[in-house]
Amino acid sequence: MSARRVCALSDLQQDQPLKVEVDGIPIAVVLDSSGEVHAIGDTCTHGDISLSEGFVEGDTLECWAHGSAFSLRTGKPLNLPAYEPVPVYVVQIDGDDVLIDPAATKAMS
């Protein structure tokens, strides 16, 4: 698989998650306060809730339903009730295009 355009960089608003779908995979794209673009699985591992409806603070995305926060860098949950990570996807920026390959996930550290 190869990276696909999911949105324009100019479509992203700082700290406002944007839900996109690539090959049926829901992904939350976030432009954080430092200007970095992140892409993580959009489904909370605790309650099957869309993370793109949640809240961004620093480099975390918090599920609005039960409060689990996930690292935008690693996908790891930072608090309960979630204990399983979400996938983190490699993001490429080409001009104003945000590209994501749903088969290219970042290794967890």
Rank of each mutant, 00 (worst) to 15 (best):
A39W: 03
Y83Q: 11
F55L: 11
A28F: 05
G35I: 01
E53Q: 12
D97S: 14
G47F: 01
S34F: 01
K76P: 00
L61P: 02
G95Q: 06
K106R: 15
S33M: 07
A39D: 11
S52H: 12
D23C: 03
R73A: 09
L51R: 12
P17I: 12
R73P: 00
A82E: 01
D42N: 15
K106Y: 02
T74D: 02
K19S: 14
D97K: 15
S68V: 03
L61W: 04
S34M: 08
G67N: 01
R5D: 00
T43G: 02
S68N: 05
G24C: 08
G41E: 11
G54R: 06
T60C: 07
E57F: 01
S10I: 03
V30N: 07
D97E: 15
P85Q: 14
W64Q: 12
I49V: 13
A8N: 15
I93T: 11
H38A: 06
E62W: 00
I25W: 03
V91L: 04
L51F: 08
E57A: 05
S33Y: 04
L99S: 09
D42L: 05
P87Q: 15
S109W: 01
D59G: 00
E62Q: 06
V56C: 07
C44N: 09
R73G: 00
P77Q: 13
K19M: 09
Q16C: 09
T45Y: 06
G47Y: 02
P87W: 14
Y89G: 04
L99V: 05
